[in-house]
Design a protein around this nucleic acid. Structure first.
Lengths: 332, 332
DNA sequence: ATATTTCGTGACAACGTTGTCTCATCGTTA
DNA sequence: TAACGATGAGACAACGTTGTCACGAAATAT
C-alpha cells in the first residue's frame, strides 16, 4: 500500500479510502490511486485489515464435515457456499473421518484463523470443549446431529419421523415381518432412525422382539454380509429398512446376489443418484441437504449479525420417494 | 496475548516464545505461561503472526472446483486435504459453476486472503490474468484442464488415451457403427476425448463421417434426448461412447426406455457409484481423482517449498473397467 | 467582509504478533 | 578474583491495514 501511495503521490490513508470505496476522496485523486494500484497489481490484505478494523471480521467461516467427499456432505457444503458467497464469505472445509481428536484439532485450526463462525457436524461425545469460544460469542451452527454438552443452534433432518414414515409405508403394503439395518447407535441420527422405525411398528402392534435389528453397520460390505445372513434365516423378513446410504447399498447387493430384489421390499434412508435406475427403483426417505445447508448458513449469518435469541434446533423434513422397491407386497 | 503475559507476570515476547515452542524459556516460566494461557483460553492469532513473520505464510490455500458437490471434484478435494493437512494447511474451497467471471472473482478473493498457493480448475478462456501473481511467486497448480495463456504446473487425466482405449475396446468387440456423445467442445477435456476416440477409429479404418457425433450435451436430459434421436435413426449405432458422467446417465436412461440396454454397447468416461449394479454393469474409463488430488497437492507443496523448475504437466492414466455394457456384441 | 461549515487529505496510533537487540544474572574458566 | 560466555527475559520496532483526529482550503452563511 505504501508503494501505491508513493506512486500516486498521496498518503496511505487515501489509498485505503479508495480501496474500500470510502467517501471523501476527490474523483481526480481516486483515479490516480486506482491507476497506481493497477499498475502495481496491488490488492488489499484482508488479514491486516481485519486486524485493525473494528468488529474484526475475517469474512471466512469453518465447515467441518464427516468427509468433503461424502455426497450428502458436499451437497450441504455447496448450499452453504451459495448462501455465504453472496456476502463474500469464504469457506474453510475439512473432513473429520469419525475422529474426535481430529474434530478438536480442526476446530482449533479454525479458531487460530479467526473464522467469523463455524458449521460443524459433531462426532465427539461432547462438544463442551467449545463452550469458551461459543460464549465468547463465536457463532456456531451444528448440522445433521445435535451437539451434546452445549447449547447451540442445530439444523437436523426429522430422522425419527422419516424412519416412522418408512415403517408406516411398509406396514401399509401389508408387511409384518420387518428388519432394521442400521449404522452404529453411537451416532445420534442412527439412534433416532431406529427409534422412529421401531416405535411406529410398536404402534401398529408389532412387538420389537419380532423385528430383526442389525446395527453397527458402517460400510457396504458389513451391511451386505448382515443382509445375507438375515435373509438366509428361518423366517426371513419380507421387508427391510436401511438407515443409511452405504447400508442400503450393501442390502441391495445382497438382494441382488440372492435374486431377491423383487421379492423383498426395501426402503432406504437417504436418497442417492441413479436410485430410480435400479431394478426395481429404490424407494427412499430423502433428506434435503441443500435445505439443511441453506438454513444453516442463514442461521450462522443471523448469529454473525448479532442475533442473540435462545439457541434452537431446526428440523428439516424428509420426504418419501416411491420408486418400486418399497411397494413390493410381502411374499412368504 | 497481553493479558496472558500480564497474568503470568512475564513479557509478551516470552508468551510468544512459549506458544511457538521456541527455546530459551525456563521450565518454570513456561509452565506459568501455559497455565495462564489455558486459564484465559488463549490461542495464537495466525493472521497477526503471518503479518510479521518472515516468509509470511498463512498456511492456507485456495481450491477452485467446478462444484464442491460434484463427486469427481470432491474426491480431488478430499485427496488434497489429506495431503495438505499433514502440514497444517487449511483449504478454502469454492465452486465455479462454469462462470469465468466467478473464476476471476474467486481468485481475487483468495489473493486478498493471502493464500500460500492455489489449485484451480480453469474455465475462463485464458488464465493470463493471473500472470502477475504467478510470476510474483504465488504457487499455482491447475487440475483437470491445462491452463491457457500462462505457464504453470498442471495435473490432468490422459483424456485422449483413455477415449482411445474405449474406442479400441468397442472395436475389439466387433463394433463398426459407433456414436460419440460428448460435452461441449469448449472444454479442453471434451475436445481431447473426442479426438482420442475418433483418431483411434480412424486408425482402424473407420471414417469419422460414419460416426454419429453429438456434442454440447451438458446434462442428463439433453444427453437422453440426443441418444433417443440417434437410436431411432435409420442406421443406429451398435455402440456408444459417452464422454462424461451426466452424458452417460442420459444415454443409460434412453437405452432403458427403448429396452435397448442389452442390445447397444456403452462405454462411459468417468466411473460412478453403483455402475456395477446396473443391468448390465456399465463399462467405464475410470479417472483417478484421488491420484490427481494427491499429485496436485504434492506439486503445490514442492512449489511452496521453493521448487522453481520449469512448469510441467503431469498426466494421470485412466483405467478401463469392464462390467458388461461395453462387451455386448454388435446387433444389427 | 468575516465567521462558519464542509471537504479532501494526511499524520499517527493501534490491531496482535514476531524479529532483533539489549540487558541482567549466573556459572565457568583462566 | 576477574573476565567471560551462556542463559533467560523484556523493550521496541515492524508487518499492512484502518480508526481517529487534526489541518488547510474552499464553499457557504452571516
Amino acid at each position: 500500500m505504501r508503494h501505491v501511495a508513493a506512486l500516486a503521490g498521496v498518503g496511505i490513508k487515501t489509498v485505503s479510502r479508495v480501496m474500500n470505496d470510502e467517501p471523501g476522496v476527490s474523483e481526480a485523486t481516486r483515479q490516480r490511486v486506482l491507476q497506481a494500484s493497477q499498475q502495481l497489481n496491488y490488492q488489499l490484505d484482508m488479514a491486516a485489515g481485519s486486524l485493525r478494523r473494528s468488529g474484526r471480521q475475517t469474512l471466512s467461516i469453518g465447515l467441518l464435515l464427516p468427509s468433503v467427499a461424502n455426497p450428502f456432505s458436499s451437497e450441504i457444503h455447496r448450499a452453504l457456499e451459495d448462501t455465504l458467497s453472496e456476502r463474500g464469505i469464504a469457506v474453510f472445509a475439512a473432513s473429520l473421518d469419525d475422529d474426535p481428536e481430529r474434530e478438536k484439532a480442526l476446530v482449533a485450526a479454525f479458531l487460530g484463523r479467526r473464522v467469523d463462525g463455524m458449521v460443524l457436524t459433531p462426532i465427539a461425545r461432547s462438544q463442551a470443549y467449545v463452550i469458551p469460544e461459543h460464549s465468547r460469542d463465536l457463532p456456531m451452527v451444528f448440522i445433521d446431529r445435535e451437539p451434546v454438552g452445549i447449547e447451540a443452534d442445530a439444523v437436523v433432518t426429522d430422522n425419527a419421523a422419516g424412519a416412522a414414515r418408512a415403517a408406516a409405508h411398509l406396514l401399509g403394503h401389508g408387511h409384518t415381518r420387518l428388519a432394521y439395518f442400521g449404522d452404529t447407535p453411537d451416532i445420534q441420527t442412527a439412534r433416532e432412525r431406529r427409534r422412529g422405525f421401531l416405535e411406529q411398528l410398536g404402534q401398529a402392534g408389532i412387538p420389537t422382539s419380532t423385528v430383526s435389528v442389525r446395527e453397527g453397520l458402517r460400510d457396504v460390505e458389513s451391511a451386505r454380509l448382515a443382509a445375507l445372513a438375515v435373509l438366509a434365516s428361518d423366517e426371513p423378513p419380507t421387508a427391510i429398512f436401511s438407515s443409511q446410504n452405504l447400508v442400503t447399498f450393501g442390502v441391495m447387493r445382497a438382494l441382488k446376489e440372492m435374486g431377491a430384489s423383487r421379492r423383498v421390499a426395501l426402503v432406504g434412508f437417504d436418497d442417492f443418484a441413479l436410485a430410480d435406475m435400479m431394478d426395481p427403483g429404490i424407494t427412499v426417505i430423502a433428506q434435503h441437504p441443500e435445505r439443511i445447508g441453506k438454513l444453516a448458513a442463514e442461521r450462522l449469518l443471523a448469529r454473525i449479525d448479532g442475533d442473540d435469541g435462545a439457541p434452537r434446533t431446526y428440523v428439516v423434513p424428509s420426504e418419501l420417494i416411491v420408486r418400486g422397491s418399497g411397494e413390493l407386497p410381502p411374499s412368504y
